[in-house]
Lab assay of single mutants.
Amino acid sequence: MTTFKLIINGKTLKGEITIEAVDAAEAEKIFKQYANDNGIDGEWTYDDATKTDTVTE
């Protein structure tokens, strides 16, 4: 398992969460579901060097 981080730069929700996932694709799926569940819809970027997804509304 690898640690992945999501940075949220939303209009109403800001912060970050960290998860353990098998790979980047699994982490992205989990993060996008989390964002959807919390009403966050924005531009996504991924930095492989830091294993960090960022969503900005």
Rank of each mutant, 00 (worst) to 15 (best):
M1F: 08
M1L: 14
M1E: 03
M1P: 05
M1V: 07
M1C: 15
M1W: 12
T2Q: 11
T2C: 15
T3I: 12
T3S: 06
F4D: 13
F4A: 11
F4Y: 11
F4T: 11
K5M: 07
K5I: 13
K5N: 02
K5V: 12
K5S: 03
K5T: 12
K5R: 10
L6Q: 01
L6M: 07
L6T: 01
L6Y: 12
L6I: 08
L6K: 00
I7G: 00
I7Y: 05
I7D: 01
I7C: 13
I7M: 03
I7S: 02
I8A: 00
I8K: 00
I8L: 07
I8R: 00
I8T: 01
I8N: 00
N9K: 08
N9R: 11
N9G: 02
G10P: 01
G10L: 14
G10C: 15
G10N: 03
K11T: 10
K11L: 14
K11G: 09
K11I: 14
K11H: 13
T12L: 08
T12C: 15
T12R: 08
T12W: 13
T12A: 08
T12Y: 13
T12K: 12
L13N: 05
L13F: 14
L13V: 09
L13G: 08
L13I: 14
L13D: 04
L13M: 11
K14S: 07
K14W: 13
K14E: 03
K14V: 10
K14T: 09
K14D: 05
G15F: 15
G15P: 09
G15A: 15
G15S: 10
G15K: 12
G15Y: 15
G15R: 12
E16Q: 10
E16G: 04
E16R: 07
E16V: 13
E16T: 13
E16A: 06
I17D: 00
I17Y: 10
I17M: 06
T18P: 00
T18K: 03
T18I: 13
T18E: 05
I19N: 00
I19A: 01
I19W: 07
I19M: 02
I19S: 00
E20M: 14
E20S: 09
E20A: 06
E20T: 11
E20N: 07
E20I: 14
E20W: 14
A21P: 01
A21N: 02
A21C: 15
A21S: 02
A21G: 03
A21H: 03
A21D: 01
A21Q: 06
A21I: 12
V22S: 06
V22P: 07
V22T: 09
V22M: 12
V22F: 10
V22I: 12
V22Y: 13
D23G: 03
D23S: 12
D23F: 06
D23K: 02
A24M: 10
A24W: 15
A24Y: 15
A24L: 13
A25F: 10
A25P: 02
A25Q: 12
A25R: 12
A25I: 09
A25S: 10
A25E: 11
E26I: 04
E26Q: 11
E26A: 11
A27M: 04
A27D: 00
A27P: 00
A27V: 08
E28Q: 13
E28I: 13
K29E: 04
I30T: 03
F31M: 06
F31I: 02
F31E: 00
F31H: 00
K32A: 08
K32R: 14
K32G: 03
K32S: 04
K32C: 14
K32P: 01
K32I: 05
K32T: 06
Q33F: 04
Q33N: 04
Q33I: 07
Q33H: 07
Y34P: 01
Y34E: 01
Y34R: 01
Y34N: 00
Y34M: 08
A35R: 02
A35L: 14
A35T: 07
A35S: 02
A35V: 11
A35I: 12
N36Q: 14
N36W: 14
N36S: 12
N36E: 14
N36A: 14
D37P: 01
D37V: 06
N38W: 15
N38E: 04
N38R: 09
N38H: 14
G39M: 06
G39P: 03
G39Y: 06
G39R: 03
G39C: 14
G39E: 04
G39H: 07
G39F: 10
I40P: 00
I40A: 02
I40R: 01
I40K: 01
I40L: 06
I40N: 01
D41A: 10
D41S: 12
D41C: 14
D41Q: 12
G42T: 04
G42D: 04
G42W: 12
G42L: 09
G42I: 11
G42P: 05
G42M: 08
G42H: 02
G42Y: 10
E43V: 12
E43D: 09
W44T: 03
W44Q: 02
W44A: 02
W44Y: 03
T45C: 14
T45I: 08
T45H: 11
T45Y: 12
T45E: 09
Y46D: 01
Y46K: 03
Y46H: 10
Y46M: 04
D47G: 05
D47T: 09
D47Y: 09
D47W: 09
D47S: 08
D47N: 09
D47V: 11
D47A: 08
D47F: 09
D48K: 08
D48W: 12
D48F: 12
D48N: 08
D48G: 06
A49K: 10
A49H: 08
A49N: 08
T50G: 07
T50E: 04
T50N: 08
T50I: 05
T50L: 04
K51E: 04
K51T: 06
K51S: 05
K51P: 05
K51D: 03
T52E: 04
T52F: 07
T52I: 08
D53T: 15
T54W: 08
T54H: 06
T54K: 10
V55E: 05
V55P: 04
V55N: 05
V55G: 07
T56W: 08
T56A: 08
T56P: 05
E57A: 05
E57C: 10
E57V: 12
